[in-house]
Design a protein around this nucleic acid. Structure first.
Lengths: 336, 336
DNA sequence: CTGAAAGCGCTTACAG
DNA sequence: CTGAAAGCGCTTACAG
């Protein structure tokens, strides 16, 4: 990890000058400025934010305490705490890959010792590509095994397969998948599982393209119903899509599960309160968090020479509710 | 802000000893250890994590990048960025007040320059009580104006009033409120608005006690229907409660909005995809974030002597959908 | 415009 | 067990 001394040496100037070249470029001769930039680039130098903050007497950091933004963060924090780590989150200010990568780098600059990345494979890969060699160990959470970085995730393929199998076991033959984004780079695995189940059953997969959102689910359901009226079941990418689909089907005058069955994925808190309550795959978030933190810990301790561990997959499990009929199963508590 | 030098001076030992007293208590004589503790306590000393991290060469921090945990964080990050600040979040590992306060203090220890606190009034107040005089400026987001700290929030009372008025304007007379937690310390304002609207209309408020959750909403709706079958409208604390109520009403064989109208609060993404789509109050999250960051900025710049600004209230606005009938209004896009 | 020096607040060998 | 000293990586007056 290059320090300001290294840059100074390479650029043949004092560290004070290097510092100025960054902080007050106009108080430095152009020629020197250029040499410093060059040296810094060559060395992959990034200022140590800790030292800077200590020297400046300020951190440029705001804290944000936000208790309810999902279970994952809470679980991660708890597991990390047990190992003596704090966790700090930096929210990307925009929903773009660039913003995400920048936030990751900002975290690096804070000299964190390890990085947990949630995000799709494309984004994670993009960040991975920008890593220098002083970058902290990383583990991805929830993206696909193909990312090429240490990973823990639910076994999406197995989950997609299981829930599709379940739908088939109910007698459905024409079952479609909602929604796969057009420009989808990542294979998320869920639709792969669906495809495998269909293929094994000698059935034709029918995958609807579109954004995997509430809106996408609603539009997707309507379009499928319009285009392929004989479809009797919809396997959704996640619960949001499924909720949207429920609405789309309702708008189209279709009854769920009477006319068409719907299943989700994720087991979000809302899913059991939908009308009808969603049959879905539960994700063991706590386990994912625990294994992710554990893996990261090993990466940190093991150093670069540690044996590369293969992806850790944890199994999601089926929770049967009302949205695709079927026999019994869990419904909203106290309903029966 | 006391430093290790101050403690050393007061305890009559070297700074090395102070450091040891904290880091390796058993490498220090009991008597000295006690003196140091005492001095540290008296001075309200907290080690500077920045300096410690720099000296130790490690931070004990893990980064967690979690893109989708609510809009607020994203908006805050964007606004902060414009002012040259980064934002770092620390997730409380448990959902308890203590855990929350500890997380806030951990953030302080990271030498952040200002703190934004989301949380209910009780929790915020608890943290406020534990502040030392080196604590950074703070602004609370979303709790009630009574917290006694600089605050920006939506005008909950006005929102509760407006939506209750709207329900009354539809002709409902027996309208109940779901749910107010039994041990509610904080007056959230929403139910106050409801009470005011009812009272002004010469009607009797009917407030149901219970947790403000999906589950609470479902149980609440059922109990109200059982206990007061003539109720024709339910004003909910938030959309989660309303969604639960939708489900509870469904379970009780009541039709919404035919038999009973339901309204929510928050305008969550799901609310427009519910069946029926929820009439609710939209919260201008972006504006809240912007004003909160702005206020915090002023606190930071102004120092302690800056004029105390009163609470900043932003107005939520009604979004009419299907869940309480009424004339037209917005429905899920493309439905009509 | 540039460098040498002191300092930010803490920790860790190194002597005693 | 304790203290003096050096150092973590940077910045900022202070001289030149």
């Amino acid at each position: 990890v290059a320090t300001i001394y290294d840059v100074a040496e390479r650029a043949q100037v004092s560290i004070a000058t290097v510092s100025r070249a960054f902080r007050r470029p106009d108080c430095v001769s152009e020629d020197v400025r250029e040499r410093v930039r060059q040296a810094a680039d060559d060395l992959g130098y990034r200022p140590n934010r800790l030292a800077r903050a200590l020297a400046e007497g300020r951190t440029n950091a705001l804290g944000l305490l936000l208790p309810f933004y999902g279970l994952l963060a809470e679980h991660v924090a708890r597991c990390a705490l047990e190992l003596g780590y704090e966790v700090v989150i930096t929210p990307p200010p925009e929903s773009t890959v660039e913003s995400y990568v920048e936030a990751a780098i900002a975290l690096e600059d804070r000299q964190i010792e390890g990085l947990l990345l949630c995000g799709d494979a494309e984004t994670v890969r993009e960040y991975a590509a920008s890593r220098r060699n002083g970058s902290p160990p990383l583990v991805a959470i929830g993206s696909s095994p193909e990312v090429g970085v240490p990973l823990v995730t639910v076994d999406e393929e197995a989950g997609g397969y299981e829930i599709a199998r379940y739908v088939l076991s109910l007698g459905h033959r024409e079952v479609a998948f909602l929604c796969l984004a057009q420009d989808e780079v990542r294979p998320t695995g869920r639709e792969h599982g669906y495809v495998r189940a269909m293929t094994e059953a000698g059935l034709e997969p029918l995958i609807h393209q579109g954004p995997a959102t509430l809106e996408g689910g609603r539009n997707g359901a309507r379009e499928i119903i319009a285009r392929a009226p004989t479809v009797t079941a919809l396997v959704s990418f996640n619960d949001a899509v499924a909720m949207g689909a429920l609405r789309g089907l309702f708008d189209s005058g279709r009854h769920v599960p009477g006319d068409v069955a719907v299943v989700g994925f994720d087991n979000t808190p809302q899913s059991r309160y939908c009308i009808p309550a969603l049959t879905t795959m539960d994700l063991p978030v706590a386990e994912v968090a625990e294994r992710a933190v554990g893996l990261l810990r090993r990466q940190i301790d093991g150093g670069a020479e540690g044996p590369a561990e293969g992806p850790i997959l944890v199994d999601p499990h089926l929770v049967r509710r009302e949205s695709c009929g079927g026999a019994g199963g869990e419904v909203a508590p106290g309903t029966g």
